[in-house]
């Protein structure tokens, strides 16, 4: 069965992870991705979550979870403890995306990172035509209440990886549920992917 056809982003992420891998999901929410990966990939999973209500939900599901903050608590893990780290839709809400990314590739052999692409054409159009900060399904907060601190575009992310000598191995296209090898910046991705999803690593 190919998980990529599942009607969820989870399927695309699961496709990147081999069976029995050890995985930490940073910003693991209510633990549903970890549960999904446990069911379909038999992973040994750990979570980190800043919101205590969600930590409680994880505990009740039997998921090992640390109440903690991606900005400060990733330092507690030794190098390459996990096969995979996952950071979905959290990078833009961290205080220091740069150090969080460095920590992710330090504590795991490979990292899966997804974020809203601020370079998407609709966002550009909203700014250009309406002169208003964009609000959409993926970016659902108004400018004055958003927890998001550091928006970036797919091209910005690629540049940061280059600066940090982080290797991008694969890219994902969530709307078409597609994974492909990364081969540099791409006009279509940066305009038309609402979400950037990448598999990265650093030795």
């Amino acid at each position: 069965m190919s998980l990529i056809n599942e009607n969820k982003d989870f399927g695309v992420i699961a496709e990147l992870i081999p069976n029995n891998a050890s995985v930490i999901d940073v910003g693991c929410n209510d633990g549903s991705l970890l549960e999904y990966l446990r069911e379909y990939k038999n992973i040994d999973g750990r979570g980190m979550e800043i919101d205590q209500k969600k930590v409680q939900l994880c505990l009740a599901k039997g998921i090992s979870v640390i109440e903690g903050d991606a900005d400060t608590d990733l330092y507690d893990y030794p190098d390459k403890l996990f096969d995979y780290s996952i950071l979905t839709y959290t990078l833009q809400a961290t205080k220091s995306p740069k150090t969080v990314m460095q920590q992710l590739v330090r504590i795991s052999k490979k990292a899966i990172i997804s974020f809203p692409n601020f370079g998407h054409w609709k966002i550009g159009a909203s700014l250009l035509l309406n002169r208003k900060m964009p609000v959409s399904k993926k970016l659902s907060y108004s400018w004055h209440e958003t927890p998001n601190l550091h928006f970036c575009t797919i091209n910005d992310f690629i540049d940061l990886c280059e600066e940090l000598e982080i290797k991008i191995e694969k890219k994902g296209d969530l709307s078409n549920k597609k994974l492909s090898n990364f081969s540099g910046k791409n006009f279509l991705d940066s305009y038309f992917n609402e979400v950037g999803l990448f598999l990265v690593s650093k030795d």
């Binding site: 640390i66 109440e67 507690d76 403890l81």
Partner: peptide, 21 residues
């Protein structure tokens, strides 16, 4: 208490941590 968590994390144990306000 976090010191304890850090040790268990380093050993890759199934550890959870919660701080009650």
């Amino acid at each position: 208490n976090k010191k304890i968590v850090k040790v268990f994390n380093s050993l890759g144990l199934n550890v959870s941590f919660i701080e009650i306000e």
